[in-house]
Design a protein around this nucleic acid. Structure first.
Length: 571
RNA sequence: CGGCGAUUAGCGCAGUUUGGUAGCGCACUUGGUUUGGGUCCAAGGGGUCGCAGGUUCAAAUCCUGCAUCGCCGACCA
C-alpha cells in the first residue's frame, strides 16, 4: 500500500471524550471514528487489524473442529419468545418492527437462531457432535457505552455453539475450545488468564472467562497465591471464617445515633471498629414468597456480592434493591438505622457475620442503633450464606494460599449450557436406541473488536501503539528520506517495496512528500513493527537502516539482504 | 434512570460573567523555504455558534424547552 493512495487519518491531538489509552490511540492512529454513542466506523487501518484478529480466531476454530456458518443479525421475536428470553433480556435487546409490524430483535447473541437451525437440520446422533461458529456483528443496547470499541453497542464477536448427546462429549469439546482459546490469545501476544465465571444471562452450568490483564479492565479477578485458581470476583467464594464465634462480652444497649446514617459515620462518631458493625440491605423478594423484602447482612467493611445474592432462594431476579418507601413500609424505620434485632422479615447473613459477637447494627428505629448485639442471646441466628465479595488477602477457596485481586478485560467466555435452549426449543435427535433425546449444548464467544482495544491497552508507549506481527495493520514501513530530491532513494525504495509486496508482506510505502519526522511519528503512532529507512547517507555503503518498533533497536542492513532479513523477522 | 458538565471550522479550544454581528492553534489549499524526528514565511478556503422558541434596536452571549455527547452514580442503609 502506498500512503498517498491510502486513508491514514492520523491525529496530532487527542479527542477530548476518549478516556482510556486504547480509545485515544485508536482515534489518533486513524483506526476508528465514532458515528454515535457506542457505534463506530472502522477506518482502513483499524479494519486491517480487526481482520487479522478474525484470521487467527478462524484458524484456531477450524483447527479445533468447528465449522463456520453465518446467521442473520435481525432475528424474529418468536424464537426469543420460545426460549423465554424475549421477556428476560430487558432493554439491552434492541427490538424493532418490520413493515408488517412483525417484531424482531437485533441479535445480542445467537443461541436461539443456532438452536432453530440445528433442530431442523440435525435429526440423528450420527451427525453429532457438531460445533458451528460464525464471526458476526452483535448489537447490545448498553446502558452506558464507553471506552470506544471496548464497550460498544455494536461490536464484532466470534460465537460458536456445540451440540452433543452426552455430558462427557460436551466436556470434551469444552476442553478443546478452552485450549483453542488459550492458543488464540497466545498467538495474539496477549497476557491473559482463564478464570471461573458466572453464567449470567446466557445460562448454563460451568463457565470460564478469558481475561486480558489491564488496569483499565472493568472486571475484578481473584487469584490464589498458592495455586492457579482464578475466578471472577462475582464467583470467588468467600470461605467461612475458621474462628469460632466468641462468647458475648457486652450487654446489648440502645444508643441514640442521630447523625450516623452510614457505617462510616457510625465508626467515626462512636469509635466502633468497622469489623464490629453490620450493614443491612433490603432486596425485593420473589412474588411467591410471603414477605415483600429480604434483609441481607454483611460486615461493615465487606461488600454485598450481587451475583451471589441473586442466587438465594426467594430473592427476586434480577436483584432489585428496595426503595426507602418500601423499607419504611415494611420495617417502620428508614435506611441508616436497620439491623437484625426485632425484625420480622426474612434475613440472610454472610458467613463472616455469623461469627461476629458484640457487634453494632441499626435498631430498626430511626436514629437509633444497638451496640453489643450477640447472636442467639439477643436474636436468633438466621440463615447463613456466602453473600460478600472476596477482598485482597482472603483465604483462597481451594485452600492454597490467599487471594489477590487484579483487573481484567473480558475477551472470551465459554459455557457449558446443558439443555437450557434445546429443551425450551425442543431440539433433539434420535439416539442409537431410536429414542428421542434432547441435545446438550455448549457456547463459546470471543470479543473480536474488543481484542483490538485490549491489545493496545497492553502494548503501547508514549509514541503510540506497538503491534505484534500477527496484529499489525502493516508489518513493514518503507520510509524514503526526501525521495523527491533523490532518484537513488526512489529507486531503492521502489525496489524494496515491490519486492516485499511480491513476498506477500503487508508493507506500507510512505510516498508522501513529508519531512522524515512526520513519517516516523505516523508509523510509530499506528504501530508498524518494522521500519526501513532509505536515505542518501546510507546508500553509498549499500545499506538501509532497519528500526524495530518494540525494542527501538536500529541496525544497518545491506540492500540485497533486506528481504530475507524481514522475512526472518516475521517468521 | 438520577446527578454533574459540555455542545463555537475536520480536531483541540478561547469568546458567554458585562448583549454590539466570531477568534486562536493544529489540519486543509496555493506559493516560497527547509529536509534523518511532528520546518519556517506569506497568502487563502472553511462556521445556520447543537435545535426550537422567547426577551431586545441588536443574542454565541440573557430566558424557556428539547436534543446529542461525556463523566459520576444507580448496594454500602
Amino acid at each position: 500500500m502506498r500512503t498517498t493512495q491510502y486513508l491514514l487519518s492520523t491525529l496530532k491531538e487527542t479527542p477530548s471524550d476518549a478516556e482510556i489509552i486504547s480509545h485515544q490511540l485508536m482515534l489518533r492512529a486513524g483506526m476508528i471514528r465514532k458515528l454515535a454513542s457506542g457505534l463506530y466506523t472502522w477506518l482502513p487501518t483499524g479494519l486491517r487489524v480487526l481482520r487479522k484478529v478474525e484470521k487467527v480466531v478462524r484458524e484456531e476454530m477450524n483447527r479445533a473442529g468447528a465449522i463456520e456458518v453465518s446467521m442473520p443479525v435481525v432475528q424474529p421475536a418468536d424464537l426469543w419468545q420460545e426460549s423465554g428470553r424475549w421477556d428476560q433480556f430487558g432493554p439491552e435487546l434492541l427490538r424493532i418492527n418490520d413493515r408488517h409490524s412483525r417484531p424482531f430483535a437485533l441479535g445480542p447473541t445467537h443461541e436461539e437462531v443456532i438452536t432453530e437451525l440445528v433442530r431442523k437440520e440435525v435429526s440423528s446422533y450420527k451427525q453429532l457432535p457438531l460445533n458451528l461458529y460464525q464471526v458476526q456483528t452483535k448489537f447490545r443496547d448498553e446502558v452506558r457505552p464507553r471506552f470506544g470499541v471496548m464497550r460498544a453497542r455494536e461490536f464484532l464477536m466470534k460465537d460458536a455453539y456445540s451440540f452433543h448427546l452426552s455430558d462427557e462429549c460436551l466436556e470434551k469439546t469444552y476442553q478443546r475450545m478452552f485450549e483453542a482459546y488459550c492458543r488464540i490469545f497466545e498467538r495474539l501476544g496477549l497476557e491473559f488468564r482463564p478464570v471461573l465465571a458466572d453464567t449470567g444471562s446466557i445460562g448454563g452450568s460451568l463457565s470460564h472467562e478469558f481475561h486480558v490483564l489491564a488496569e483499565s479492565g472493568e472486571d475484578a479477578i481473584a487469584f490464589a497465591s498458592g495455586s492457579d485458581y482464578a475466578a471472577n470476583i462475582e464467583m470467588a467464594e468467600a470461605v467461612a471464617p475458621e474462628t469460632e464465634r466468641a462468647a458475648p462480652g457486652e450487654e446489648m444497649k440502645l444508643v441514640d445515633t442521630p447523625n450516623a446514617k452510614t457505617i462510616e459515620e457510625l465508626v467515626e462518631q462512636f469509635g466502633l471498629a468497622i469489623e464490629k458493625t453490620v450493614k443491612t440491605l433490603f432486596v425485593k423478594a420473589t412474588e411467591e414468597s410471603e414477605a415483600p423484602l429480604i434483609a441481607l447482612m454483611v460486615r461493615g467493611d465487606h461488600e454485598l456480592n450481587e451475583v451471589k445474592a441473586e442466587k438465594l432462594a426467594n430473592v427476586a431476579v434480577p436483584l432489585t434493591f428496595a426503595t426507602e418507601e418500601e423499607i419504611r413500609a415494611a420495617v417502620g424505620a428508614g435506611p441508616g438505622s436497620l439491623g437484625p434485632v426485632d425484625l420480622s422479615l426474612p434475613v440472610v447473613v454472610d458467613r463472616a457475620v455469623a461469627v461476629m459477637s458484640d457487634f453494632g447494627a441499626g435498631a430498626n428505629q430511626d436514629d437509633k442503633h444497638y451496640f453489643g448485639i450477640n447472636w442467639e442471646r439477643d436474636v436468633a441466628l438466621p440463615e447463613v450464606a456466602d453473600l460478600r465479595s472476596v477482598v485482597e488477602g482472603d483465604p483462597s477457596p481451594d485452600g492454597q494460599g490467599t487471594l489477590s485481586i487484579k483487573r481484567g478485560i473480558e475477551v472470551g467466555h465459554i459455557f457449558q449450557l446443558g439443555t437450557k435452549y434445546s429443551e425450551a426449543m425442543k431440539a433433539g435427535v434420535l439416539n442409537e436406541q431410536g429414542a428421542h433425546q434432547v441435545l446438550n449444548m455448549g457456547c463459546y464467544g470471543v470479543g473480536v473488536s474488543r481484542i483490538v482495544a485490549a491489545a493496545i491497552e497492553q502494548n503501547h508507549d508514549d509514541n503510540g501503539i506497538i503491534w505484534s506481527d500477527g496484529l499489525a495493520p502493516f508489518n513493514v514501513a518503507v520510509l524514503p528520506m526526501n525521495m523527491h530530491k533523490s532518484a537513488r532513494v526512489k529507486e531503492v525504495a521502489d525496489k524494496l517495496y515491490t519486492g516485499l509486496q511480491d513476498a506477500n508482506v503487508d508493507v506500507l510505502f510512505d510516498d508522501r512528500k513529508e519531512r522524515p519526522g512526520v513519517m516516523f511519528a505516523d508509523m510509530e503512532l499506528i504501530g508498524v513493527p518494522h521500519c526501513l529507512v532509505i536515505g542518501e547517507r546510507n546508500l553509498d555503503e549499500g545499506v538501509v537502516e532497519y528500526k524495530n518498533r518494540r525494542t527501538g533497536e536500529k541496525q544497518k542492513i545491506a540492500i540485497d539482504e533486506v528481504q530475507s532479513f524481514i522475512q526472518q523477522q516475521l517468521a
